[in-house]
Simulated scan of single mutants.
Amino acid sequence: MKSTEPACQYELKVAKDAMEVIQGKWRIPIIISLTYGNKRFGEIQRDIPEISPKMLSQELKALEENQLITRTLYDSMPITVEYALTPLGLSMKDLLVELRNWGKHFRKEIVGK
């Protein structure tokens, strides 16, 4: 066995762990929306109009379970709920910048726009 194989296996494992947390069509757009500040449910939905309320709710719960966002309830009439990125969620900033940069490159090279 080559000495690099355990390192490769570890790198594959941590990449898979990361992908499981952010996988899917909606999690990255939700996180990007929250990089612009704390938001209520309706504000996130306005940022991502293609997502259904049910799907947004499910994805917000998954992101909260993975400690990427927080959900804060305010004692008001009616009750207000606000979502925000946690320090762990904010730590994705460089990743999101690189993802957007690559997306611009991809669009230019492949899509032509």
Rank of each mutant, 00 (worst) to 15 (best):
L88E: 05
R107I: 10
A7M: 14
D47V: 00
E109N: 06
K13N: 07
K54Y: 06
H105F: 14
D17L: 11
A15P: 06
H105C: 12
Y74E: 07
G42W: 14
T86Q: 00
Q67K: 13
V81S: 08
L63M: 06
P29F: 09
D94R: 12
V14L: 08
I30E: 07
R107G: 05
V81Y: 04
E43H: 04
R40L: 06
E64T: 10
D47C: 04
Y74A: 09
T86K: 00
L90Q: 12
E5H: 08
L96N: 02
K104M: 08
I28P: 12
P53W: 01
S76A: 10
E50K: 11
A7Y: 15
S57W: 06
V81G: 04
F106M: 02
Q9W: 01
E59Q: 10
L85W: 08
R46N: 05
N66H: 15
E82V: 13
L73S: 12
F106Q: 07
T72C: 03
L99Q: 11
K39M: 12
I30M: 08
I69M: 01
R100F: 09
S57C: 03
M1H: 09
K13W: 13
K104G: 06
D75C: 07
Q23H: 03
L85R: 06
E98R: 12
L96I: 09
K93S: 06
M1Q: 14
G24M: 00
T80D: 02
R107Y: 06
R27M: 06
Q58C: 03
V111I: 11
L56H: 01
Y36E: 07
Q23E: 09
I48V: 05
I69H: 00
S76T: 09
D47W: 01
Y36G: 11
G24E: 00
R71K: 10
E43Q: 12
Y74M: 03
P49L: 09
K113W: 10
V81Q: 08
G24V: 00
I110W: 15
I31M: 03
P6Y: 06
T72Q: 14
Q58G: 03
R107Q: 13
G42C: 06
I22C: 02
A7R: 15
V97G: 07
E82M: 10
V111T: 11
T35I: 05
P78Q: 04
K39F: 08
Q23D: 05
D47L: 00
M1F: 09
V97E: 15
F106G: 04
E109Q: 06
K108Y: 10
E64G: 03
E43T: 05
L95Q: 10
I28M: 12
N38W: 03
L34R: 09
K108L: 08
M1V: 08
G24H: 00
E109F: 03
A62M: 05
E82C: 08
F41M: 02
P29Y: 11
K2F: 11
Q45S: 05
I48Y: 03
A7K: 14
L85Q: 05
L95I: 12
A7S: 14
